[in-house]
């Protein structure tokens, strides 16, 4: 095959119109339907790959809508790697600008939650912090701790009740009317072999975002309390240990003077 023929064959797979030249069949010199089998295989297999990454999103909009949306996405953003585990990471951004999905404003965040779950599922295994990790530390030095995120960790903040919607569409909670529409914050991690989602308060989310960004415990607490007066530190430290969000702690060496809770 000349490289040209292969290029034409490849280009036609994600397009419409007649099959490229140079093809044949025992009974037909223009085997359109036979070429169409490959076209269909490409689109159907990539659509299935996206549906398997976003089952809750598919459930929300229905199979027909999801497939049409996926096909538009695939044509514009075909995968670049033969490893499809991360294919579609940019689909929520695409969906946010996809006019037919505008009424389902929460859909991109549900998809981001599904991406975080998938990432946690496949990320490197790292043991969570020992539940007694803080006990061995001099209380005066607690504020100087920095936290190494577990490779499975994501913290997702949404203006929509994203955990509730996801759970209702993933079979984890019965479908019901959502009476009070408020934002939800999710901590996604895999402490052992099961991916878990923990709901955070707005203050808790701010706190975890700070720690993930590399702030010391003291700085994270300080800046969280400034905006969230009701922030409950002991409650969130318990979540921190229980959720497997972090896999190591060490003392920050650069800001010793600010490390007081």
């Amino acid at each position: 095959m000349s490289a040209t023929l292969q290029s034409a064959f490849a280009a036609g797979l994600l397009a419409t119109g007649p099959a490229p030249g140079g093809l044949t069949a025992w009974n037909n010199k223009t085997p359109e339907r036979r070429y169409g089998v490959y076209r269909n295989n490409v689109m159907a297999s990539l659509t299935a790959a996206l549906a398997s990454r976003f089952p809750a999103a598919e459930n929300i909009v229905g199979q027909a809508f999801f497939q049409a949306m996926a096909q538009t996405f695939i044509a514009a953003h075909p995968p670049s790697s033969p490893v499809l585990l991360a294919y579609g990471d940019d689909m929520p951004d695409f969906v946010a600008n996809f006019a037919p999905a505008r009424e389902v404003a929460y859909l991109p965040d549900v998809m981001r939650l599904e991406i975080a779950r998938g990432r946690a599922y496949h990320a490197a295994d790292a043991p969570p912090l020992d539940p007694t990790a803080f006990a061995a530390i001099d209380p005066a030095r607690l504020g100087g701790l920095v936290f190494e995120p577990n490779p499975t960790l994501s913290v997702l903040s949404s203006l929509h009740p994203v955990i509730t919607i996801w759970a209702m569409n993933a079979g984890a909670r019965p479908l019901a009317k959502i009476d009070v529409w408020h934002g939800e914050h999710a901590l996604i991690a895999r402490p052992q072999m099961t991916v878990e989602i923990t709901s955070l308060s707005p203050g808790g989310a701010a706190f975890f975002h700070q720690l993930v960004a590399g702030a010391t415990l003291a700085i994270a607490v300080e800046s969280t309390i400034r905006k969230h007066a009701d922030f409950d530190l002991s409650d969130n430290l318990a979540t921190l240990l229980r959720s497997g969000a972090f896999s190591a702690i060490h003392q920050d060496k650069t800001n010793e003077d600010r490390n007081h809770v």
Partner: peptide, 19 residues
């Protein structure tokens, strides 16, 4: 299954020539 950095996710055929 790949061409110009696009992965097509199907086992695509090739002509059989010396090349």
């Amino acid at each position: 299954s790949s061409h110009d950095s696009v992965f097509l996710n199907d086992l695509l055929p090739l002509p059989y020539t010396e090349e």
